[in-house]
Amino acid sequence: MSVADLPRKEANVLKGHEGAVLAARFNSDGNYCLSCGKDRTIRLWNPHRGIHIKTYKSHGREVRDVHVTPDNSKLCSCGGDRQIFYWDVSTGRVIRKFRGHEGEVNAVKFNDYSSVVVSAGYDQSLRAWDCRSHSTEPIQIIDSFQDSVMSVCLTKTEIIGGSVDGIVRTFDIRIGREISDDLGQPVNCISMSNDGNCILASCLDSTLRLLDRSTGEQLQEYKGHTCKSYKLDCCLTNTDAHVTGGSEDGFVYFWDLVDASVVSSFRAHASVVTSVSYHPKDNCMITASVDGTIRTWKT
């Protein structure tokens, strides 16, 4: 993939959130996207046509993260009200609420089978919630973190959490081991490479770090952007050729995966770019910002 193929042209601006947008995520096939923000709503969009489809309102405070199942039937969201909401996408109703976190919930993810929601909270814990049964108790509490857990990633067999204590912990369910990779810097956001071999961790020293999951080695550092106080997302492009992430000055950066050079950067928003999400197949990206807009970028 050459630099010219990077999505740098603004295709659509999705306006509707009143206040900062905290997260924007493509669904699994990339046709729709979800966003959530300080206005306590979750919104469903078609980013390619720029249409607002649906609004989900039930959260009592800001919504910090949202995730949708691979079959697009269910949503989960979390936020400042310490709850995880389990939504039905089509009806827009809350199926279940999971309470138990002792603080704000920073991130939430479904597992592959959409049977478990794993949430990362300010209360230094990861909690796994069962979607199948009707119990509202967490089926697993992982509390080995020493500080607020900012981000969580799931694979088929592992739960990976990144925390402000600077450690990325991988919990392998299959072998019952916890592997902790100390990065030494508060970890803001972690995201998996598409091949599943690497973790990209956004640290609060304005650095993205790429870790080899099998060995724990640091493969590369990506610098140039500003990330000092906000929770900024980062991700790899669909081909794993580039690393992308937002910056607190409203820029979006693209780095080459291998040689860590800034391939491209452009001003995407007027304010902090809180979230980036890359299309699973195409060269398309959405960015969300504190300025209340979500923008779709294409080549």
Binding site: N111, D112, Y113, S115, V116, A128, D130, R132, I139, Q140, I142, S144, K156, T157, V168, F171, D172, I173, R174, I175, G176, R177, E178, I179, S180, D181, D182, L183, G184, Q185, R209, L211, T215, G216, E217, Q218
Partner: peptide
């Protein structure tokens, strides 16, 4: 190379979590 530093611990997933992830409980 102090960072990243890798350590490993034992961790016990709950049986139901294993079940939901469609994995056999290692414990």
């Amino acid at each position: 190379k102090i960072f990243p530093k890798r350590e490993e611990y034992q961790w016990r997933p709950s049986p139901i979590l294993c079940k939901r992830f469609d994995l056999t409980d290692p414990y």
